[in-house]
Design a protein around this nucleic acid. Structure first.
Lengths: 146, 146
DNA sequence: ATACCTGCAAAGGCTTTGCGGTTCG
DNA sequence: CGAACCGCAAAGCCTTTGCAGGTAT
């Protein structure tokens, strides 16, 4: 696990290189993303940023997460229907997803799949595993029901 | 691989059991989904249905795919941002996804992951693997560019 | 100084919903 | 006949975009 301060420094460095300005909003969004482990939606990040900068706009958060994605410092995690979620954990990892409430948690596995470099004409780049199930909270819920 | 006729019969059967009416539109949507192997979007299914029933509405297609999903006869496949795609292949299988154009293809693998029944408090139900890469068409494109 | 960025509000997709008329069982 | 369904249009999200003013380098 990389230190949070290093991640921030790297971000600032990359911004400089790319000629992007380092604004308080950008820092805030990235910092919040680093400190979140529940893969927040844009809306959730926005609410969090607003605590520090009440006048921030949702559009800015959208623009920032897109920038982060293009820089390779965040990934968009898309599960069903709902809104997109973001993840600043760029280590190789997988996801554990609740089929009921949509909660997402990082998952590290010992097992590895060996994917050929070429598959059905595709030039492969990587893979991700989604494990589906009921999260602890939803398990309790469903026991209550029965 | 299950025969298409059996799939249709099963669908009709299930509708009867659930007290759902068997309408031409429903049959058409499911039939098109069975015969598609490119995981069509709702829009694409709609265009296809319109060839047979020009007055069908997009809302009906949305309602029908949702019904199919609830019956377990189709799955929503969600990749980044774009619109949802549907898949009537209910066999255990995975997906090969083009990072450039978003094309999705079914993928069958020999390898299997062994997922514990319980993982970090989740009661697991299954998993799916997404392999990312460049599809044949996009590979050609990128060669042209360089 | 100037290029980049922000906030606001409006527009843009995709998807869902309410309603009256229609169709299946 | 009655419940379920359809088509239409309107409304509802989530997300993107244009613009004028502001800010970092």
């Amino acid at each position: 696990m990389e230190g949070k301060q290093e991640m921030l420094n790297r971000f600032v460095e990359r911004c400089r290189q790319a000629g992007l300005k380092i604004t308080p909003q950008r820092i805030a969004v990235y910092e919040i993303l680093i400190n979140s482990h529940n893969h927040p939606t844009v809306e959730e990040i926005y609410e969090e940023v607003k605590k520090r900068y009440p006048f921030v706009s949702l559009a800015t958060v959208y623009r920032t997460v897109e920038t982060l994605e293009q820089m390779g410092l965040a990934k968009k995690v898309c599960y069903w229907g709902s809104s997109a979620r973001y993840d600043a954990n760029t280590e190789e990892h997988h996801h554990l997803i609740c089929v009921k409430c949509g909660a997402i948690r990082d998952l590290y596995m010992d097992q590895e799949l060996s994917i050929p470099e070429e598959l059905e004409g595709f030039k492969t780049e990587g893979y991700s595993v989604n494990v589906y199930g009921l999260c602890p909270d939803c398990r309790k819920e469903s026991q209550k029901d029965s």
